[in-house]
Design a protein around this nucleic acid. Structure first.
Lengths: 129, 129
DNA sequence: CTAACCGTACTAAGTCACTTAATACAGTCA
DNA sequence: TGACTGTATTAAGTGACTTAGTACGGTTAG
């Protein structure tokens, strides 16, 4: 499911982009599976098809999906679920840890934080879209 | 030192806000110390005083500083260097770690990432502004 | 007191990204 | 053939951000 937040400062197309990226990377939408058409998704979300189009174009540019005129848009087979996004997130985690250390937070506290994270991640699989 | 990035999608006032927050929270600008005047900083950064004003107003709203008409703007005494921001960052780190685990990244890899973070943080103290 | 600072407030204008709308065209497929 | 697909284009509206200019009252050194 993709949720739009109109109060968010981030543009809609970017929220859709992020939302789809998550669905792809978590395997909620499998490789080679077809994404909803720009018009369909636009109708479901009550926004303009152009906005969806833009989100899809960005995703394609990033290699998360590819489009075939006349057929539809599909998830790339080479995404390696969690591989691409994992890299970004790890960089993020690294930067965050560095900053916290800079602020004087003891390393052990951060390590404990990481250990406790994601303890209840069993019933979260969704595929509704 | 505050650096502006005009390519950044984030507005200038927000970049200034973030930059000052960092200087305050790291102790580069001590509690009760006076911040540069809106006009001074505006001149230094070659932007409009109104934009600085907005950044200051946001910082005041968040409790990082307070302003006295006719005197200037000053860092709040109750900031607890690294306390406030540290809380936010820890929440962020926690969420990030949870997501990475969800993607199947082994805990030990994350722990190692945290251990390696912030190794070269000795010569970064600046006070130039 | 005066002049030079300070924060604050307001209006007007311009710019730009985002979004919508309305088409249009070509490819796919039952 | 008709109903879908993706893609492209132009035009318009909106809103946030930024600048510019001006103004007012408080503070402070000379």
């Amino acid at each position: 499911m993709i949720t739009l937040n109109y109060r968010d400062s981030r543009p809609i197309y970017e929220q859709i982009q992020e939302g789809l990226k998550r669905l792809i990377v978590t395997g909620a939408i499998a490789a080679e599976e077809r994404l909803p058409s720009v018009r369909t998704l636009a109708t479901q979300l009550s926004i303009n098809p152009n906005t969806i189009q833009r989100a899809y174009a960005e995703l394609e540019r990033e290699g998360y999906c590819y489009s075939v005129p006349g057929k539809g848009s599909f998830v790339s087979g080479s995404v390696d679920t969690g591989e691409k996004r994992g890299k970004e997130l790890k960089d993020h985690l690294f930067a965050l840890a560095a900053e916290l250390k800079f602020l004087g937070v003891p390393e052990e506290e951060l390590l404990e934080l990481v250990r406790r994270a994601g303890a209840a991640e069993t019933d979260k699989k969704e595929g509704t879209l």
